[in-house]
Design a protein around this nucleic acid. Structure first.
Lengths: 358, 358
DNA sequence: TTTTAGCACTTAGCTGTTCTGAGTGCTAAC
DNA sequence: GTTAGCACTCAGAACAGCTAAGTGCTAAAA
């Protein structure tokens, strides 16, 4: 536990290091600190901070930079979000000023706006599909032997995919199957639909249809796509802004990491393993995880600012900023608060068009 | 015009430089060349090649590397495609061994396969939509006041998008409008549909509908999306493989360039300005353009291998490899020939499912 | 007990020098 | 026309010296 003065010094080191990118020495601190103490005193205090593992030096006679633990302490105890400038505010409002046809377009656009605003990479995931229900399933024949399968959910999201009609199944049977699906499954949560699809539905269909397999594959496929979480990543190329030029290999791996949809959920701390007290979910709508906490060696020098937002009747969405450990957290967190507010507003605007009954 | 021996030396320089990445000196050449001549003779010949602008040196006493003009000459006169190894062949066949539901999935996959195979970045564009016709348009109501608009083309491609029903228009009118569209436009080439949409259709609709604007916007939007060329880019991160670590900024610009859909057509030499004899379209199905020829200062050190392929009744598709000026062209061109063959085969396989009448 | 001035010490990074290896251009002989 | 030989050039590595920034420690002052 650092003393109050030590904390002040730590905060100042974080601030200056963020501004300059250079290690901070005792003299610089003496000139910048609001209290009048000598550089020698600061050196003594810094020695303590270093013993506590909150700051470190690159070599014996260099200034200090915050360690990951130091950032952690700063984030937990010292940081206060700064207020966002009015023009930033109006930039956001302006960028969102489109008419969106699909919720995913909003999510996608949010990632782009945020990465433009911050010059970091951002990851956006729309409101979760947890308690979303199936509202309809259609098969529309298209020409010769193609159909388009359309699956609609209570979220207003629509998944449509094109299939070849399995030759094993008659169009009569298809109609029957669609009717059965709609009769039995509309109104149920997607997750339940998924599990029913494995057990009950095949039994029911076999009773009425000759060979239900082709249809089941088709329905399962479109369902899987509808239920999948779609992450949107904005400003990938911003990763190049702060990469040291000597680790192109790591950078490449990182790029490939972001393209793998499978790692993003764990990165954003979804699907937490149940009793892992090690990395417990951060509290509060905005949280920051640094280095090791991201559970990926590639991200040792990175930080992730995650903001969760709630959309009534829909669930929780997430938007995050990925950048170097040293980011201007104070500004960014202030920005994220405002940003999610605007994003949620836009989403309500979108949903209100449909669900006036909510 | 280099002599035969000079050409031999040039080809060898290209080969060795591609293998080692290092400038090639006269002694190395003496050991590698199939003919027995001394290093001094080689030096004399190289002096001539340098005068002709085909090779150059980094500094007074370094080995030679091929200049862009040298590569150009090599490509036009000396290169012969090498034969692809059987295991590469089977890798390609294996990677294509999926059942694809949409033509765009094949195009997308082709970009991924090619970039994995070559460790370069690849750009893929499906068969052009030039003589593709509209085969149907549907509006399917979804719940409250959403519709999904579906536009199908003779290529078997389907574009579906979700819209809010414009409040200005009654569902009765919508049905009428859809009927009119189908009666008048089905069977016409997409391009013609586009132009009719600007002139005739609005007039016709106004006769039958109260306020056709909302519908026209909607139809125009889905049409625009259906007619747009969708480029798929595979292996973006491979750009990092051969980037000098000191030009991160250029690299970033390049990344952003590739994300701009608007520059890709000109990069692939589509929509050639009519009388530009400067960069005349390269002949043959596979062509290579280098440095300046790409008309983009960011690409001064890059080369683009473009392969065109023809799919009967559909049009021309393009797939390209983007890499450094120094690529193993011999292998890559051999590979591209095989690859497009496989790709075309796959596409016929796909289309044959629908158009048995072709 | 805390703070401060002073000083010896450390280190990265810059500068300049030297040395070496690879390669060239040229000349004179073959 | 070809080759051997030689002087010359240049990048890059290795090394030393210097400077600027910063540290830790000690002893005196507050």
């Amino acid at each position: 536990m650092p003393t109050k003065r030590q904390a002040l010094i730590l905060a100042e080191i974080v601030r200056i290091y963020n501004e300059t990118g250079q290690p901070v020495g005792s003299k610089t601190l003496m000139n910048q600190l609001p209290i009048r103490i000598s550089s020698a005193t600061i050196r003594n205090e810094m020695a303590v901070l270093e013993e506590d593992g909150l700051i470190m030096k690159n070599h014996t006679s260099s200034g200090r930079i915050p360690s990951t633990a130091g950032y952690r302490y700063y984030l937990d105890h010292l940081l206060q979000p700064s207020v966002v400038s009015p023009q930033t505010f109006s930039t956001i409002a302006q960028d969102f000023d489109h008419e969106f046809h699909e919720i995913d377009d909003i999510v996608k656009q949010s990632a782009n706006i945020l990465s433009n605003l911050t010059n970091y990479t951002s990851i956006s995931l729309g409101p979760e599909t947890a308690n979303v229900t199936l509202t309809g399933f259609r098969l529309i024949p298209l020409g010769d032997d193609q159909v388009i399968a359309i699956l609609a959910t209570s979220m207003g999201s629509v998944e449509s995919r094109v299939y070849r009609i399995p030759t094993s199944i008659s169009s009569d049977d298809l109609e029957k199957a669609v009717r059965i699906i709609n009769d039995r499954l509309v109104g149920l949560p997607i997750n339940q639909v998924k599990s029913l699809l494995k057990a009950e539905i095949p039994r029911v269909l076999t009773r009425y249809l000759h060979s239900p397999d082709g249809f089941l594959d088709l329905f399962g496929d479109v369902l899987r796509h509808a239920a999948a979480e779609h992450f949107y990543i904005g400003g990938r190329s911003n990763l190049l802004n702060f990469a040291q030029s000597d680790d192109l290999d790591r950078l490449k791996s990182l790029y490939q990491l972001l393209d793998k949809e499978s790692v993003l959920p764990s990165l954003l701390n979804l699907r937490q393993p149940e009793n892992s007290s090690a990395t417990k979910p951060p509290s509060g709508p905005i949280s920051v995880r640094l280095g090791d906490e991201l559970d990926n060696s590639l991200l040792a020098d990175y930080g992730l600012i995650t903001a969760r937002y709630h959309v009534a009747h829909q669930g929780e969405g997430i938007i995050a900023i990925l950048g170097p450990t040293s980011m201007p957290y104070s500004q960014l967190i202030g920005l994220m608060q405002l940003f999610t507010d605007e994003l949620v507003k836009k989403m309500y605007e979108y949903y209100d068009q449909f669900h006036d009954d909510s």
